[in-house]
Design a protein around this nucleic acid. Structure first.
Lengths: 244, 244
DNA sequence: TGTATACATTGACTTGTATCAAAAAAACGA
DNA sequence: TCGTTTTTTTGATACAAGTCAATGTATACA
């Protein structure tokens, strides 16, 4: 499930043996479809593409740590990344999970301080890297790019506001319910949704521990609100989810 | 304490009787000193100043509600505003408190959706209002303004990340400790800090209830970490605060 | 195919914090 | 200054959720 992109690619050209551990990435195509760079003129897009270097990361490999000095920001080319904070005693809180086309680590670019959180690749990934000063120069000469970036940051702020609300004003069942509803909207509004991350990671995203999350899954199943089968979750009663 | 700006102004020209309920605001001076507009050329500053309309708000008066359609954003001219989320059963979580020169409600400007949270004036205030499209036009022709706005949003994102971390990974005493440390840094690094908001509001900012906050104040006082006298708090043991 | 590793579940117990209720203190307006 | 309102504190109680520990179940790799 997690390597679906690779698998698809391999399936579609079974004649040529797939390259091991070095998937190729169509940089320009990715950039052209990304929220940040879509709409740019072809020459500008070329400029952006030339600016970005790529780097491969294994599952579980760190991209940066909180406190690291930032010389630029990243965009997911392929795979997925989790952005998270960590407490002294080792508990983690996931802030975001980003997939292809989504930029991350941009905050220090515009503010200067070190990275405010950690980034770890949660799948074999390819990340694009954009050096800070070159990107700022580009923004200075491309107002539409500035507005795109402002839109990206605005969406993030909105999400953070929702996350703070969730952590402070809702109990864990309601947080899970909200997340499941979010997943149905993301996954074509079918009543069957698929978790893209292990349940332990979902717990960390919802600000709880795996045991509690597990118990709530069991309870909601018992109440007939959902049916859980591994990573597949069927929403049986959408209304009751909303109430939770 | 809360109306110090008004009082100072009135004191400095006691000959003329102070205007009742209609304090005057030096718009251009405020804008020139604000993070967002500082560094702009005088003609641009004039343009910005002409763009902004002003409106007075009483203590407790709403500026906008979550879900309201946004036609522009605001900046605090005088006084203070709290930005907050509210649960169905009436509990509130404060996201930010902003003072003079700080913009708020900008998220919908760049993303289009309605306001993600509520805004209430917590003092008699004057707010500047910037209409959306005009401001976007200005950004399009002023790259440095775009970068300033990007910096502002970046700082907000950083704060949100800290707030999520706080709510999820720290217990209330540690959150209070972090806030007190933040206050000492903000208030010239003296060991005596002053709360600018009622303790009940501080509780809402820290994601707890007034009773719990009160008990923690008592406990910390008993441990000799702080001494509380109304809104004045003396930090007796900075190290123990850090540990909390 | 088995074996190691990661992931998930269940039970017993503990605890931080919310809630309810009521009194005390402080702030405010007339 | 008095009386009203808001804010803060204190006590008793309840409960959501974390922790510890153990077991069960997938998953991957050699």
């Amino acid at each position: 499930m997690q390597h679906s992109l690779d698998e698809q690619k391999n399936n579609s050209r079974q004649i040529t043996p797939p390259r091991k551990n070095k998937p190729v990435l169509n940089k320009k195509q990715l950039l052209a479809k990304s929220v940040l760079f879509r709409g740019l003129t072809p020459p500008l897009l070329q400029q952006v593409s030339d600016l970005a270097s790529t780097k491969n990361f294994q599952r579980g490999e760190s991209i940066f740590f909180e406190g690291d000095e930032a010389t630029g920001f990243y965009m997911v080319g392929q795979g997925r990344v989790k952005i998270f904070k960590m407490s002294l005693d080792g508990k983690e809180q996931i802030l975001h999970i980003f997939g292809p086309g989504e930029p991350f680590g941009e905050v220090p670019v515009f503010h200067g301080n070190p990275f405010p959180a950690n980034a770890v690749s949660i799948e074999p990934s390819i990340m694009l890297f954009f050096p800070r000063q070159e990107f700022i120069n580009l923004i200075n000469s491309t107002p539409s790019l500035a507005l795109s970036m402002l839109a990206v940051l605005s969406i993030r702020l909105r999400r953070f506001a929702a996350q703070v609300e969730s952590l402070s004003l809702k109990e864990v069942p309601a947080r899970l319910a909200a997340h499941l509803i979010y997943l149905t909207e993301e996954q074509k509004n079918t009543s069957m949704v698929t978790l893209q991350i292990p349940k332990g990671q979902l717990a960390s995203l919802l600000g709880t521990c795996p045991e509690t999350l597990s118990r709530i899954f069991t309870k909601m199943s018992g109440q007939g609100v959902i049916r859980v089968n591994g990573k597949k979750i069927e929403i049986l009663c959408y209304d009751k989810l909303l109430e939770r």
